[in-house]
Design a protein around this nucleic acid. Sequence first.
RNA 1: GGGGGCGUGGUGUAGUGGUUCAACAUGCGGCCCUGUCAAGGCCGAGAUCGCGGGUUCAAAUCCCGUCGCUCCCGCCA
Length: 439
Amino acid sequence: MKRTLIKDLNQHIGEQVTIQGWLHTLRDQKNMQFLIMRDRTGLVQVAHYKKGDLDLAETISGLGTESALRLTGKVIENEIVKLGGLEIQLEDLLIENAAEIPLPFEPFGEYLPEQDFRLDWRFLDLRRQINQLIFEVQTTAVQAMREFWLQKGFIEIHSPKIMGTPSESGAELFSLPYFDTTAYLAQSPQFYKQMAMAAGFERVFEFGPVFRADPSFTSRHMTEFTGVDMEISWIDSHEDVMATMERWLAYTTQSVIEKHDEAIAATLGHHLEVPAVPFPRITMAEAHQLLNEIGYKLPFEKKFDLDPGAERALGAHFKETQGHDYVYVTDWPFEARPFYHMLHPNAPGLTRSFDLLGKGLEIATGAQREHRYEVLKAQALEKGLSLEVIQGYLNYFRYGTPPHGGFGFGLSRFMMVLLDLPNIREAVYIFRGPTRLTP
RNA sequence: GGGGGCGUGGUGUAGUGGUUCAACAUGCGGCCCUGUCAAGGCCGAGAUCGCGGGUUCAAAUCCCGUCGCUCCCGCCA
């Protein structure tokens, strides 16, 4: 018999249906048994009159909650049932996979075990409604991001994650044996998306894994995460990148609201808002001045940079003064940026770059890239890089590469910001950290 | 790489030197209950208090070490 989803049961009053799902709660009484069943669409009560089938009653009594069941019965309206005013009168039950007793923890209990323990049993943790919602929302968000770009003629690329030389960035590399040599896991698709600019693709994006061997033990770092990268050609400055990005994020948020507003309100207790475009912008120099005014003390060694506390302070300030969750911090000093960021022509030492803060959290970095071969080489040397090692990359800029720029964006960090999740381990399907390689 | 915090039955917590210090909740097992509904009632099993060492007449409780987890800084998405 065809499966009926629990949310559709009210269209089948009086009919015999089959539902498939998990035993959410069992109330086993003297004469009656009540099974609360859950599938991905909701909960329903199933009633069984014990004397109607004593063998079945005994089977049910032995069931552990969270067992995977398929059951058949007649849907009846019953106003005394508090769960939706209907119930299924049980006729047949098939145990697809019994849950052992006891469970490692109760996914639907009053309190939850600490996060580390839940990660050990992530599949049980993921049965919780909020977790299903997080990944439904992420699916919609990623779909919208891709849609936005496809509407504008972007090409999607998939660059290799195994590399012979480090890709860039100060981040530590994972190395691995590779036949008779050593290979590295990509820290970023940076060089490859710029290669696409040299290739004349003009506009590209990529969703892909990124690996960072930094031993970071914080609520917002992972050793492997999904990077969302884009790169566009023929830009005038980093402003073009920011302008594209903010509309892209507004479109994405709009899509999430259209599809999940009700569920988000029901589960998280608040509504999302589409961020107003354009987002606030502040230069690094202005940011330092502002921080000074609002009394945030930045350590001396951070005179070219921000620290996480400063980012939170800026986020809070723009929320308070402009009601905005996002802010671009632009024009970072070259000291704080990689060699390939383009310098301002009339402000030496400053780059055409930006970070995007969402609720005070760094979720993206972008810039116009330096596409002039000689200038790029000089900047690499200034950063102390060996030209030999990056010559393959430098070659992209010898045979007609347009001006271009783009950004790298952390998908899970965005999910944290979007849904107010306190820890990136809640925002990612399966967490990878310095001491977490399983599941 | 640096710093802080935590580590008690399956799970979440209480207890901060002795005399119920091993408790409470939940889960688990049993019994009871005219259809319950986040069910309820009664009974029961379950932790030598992460591990090792030390202080003390006495340690879950203090000290040292170690391991694990966690958060912050550094680094970044």
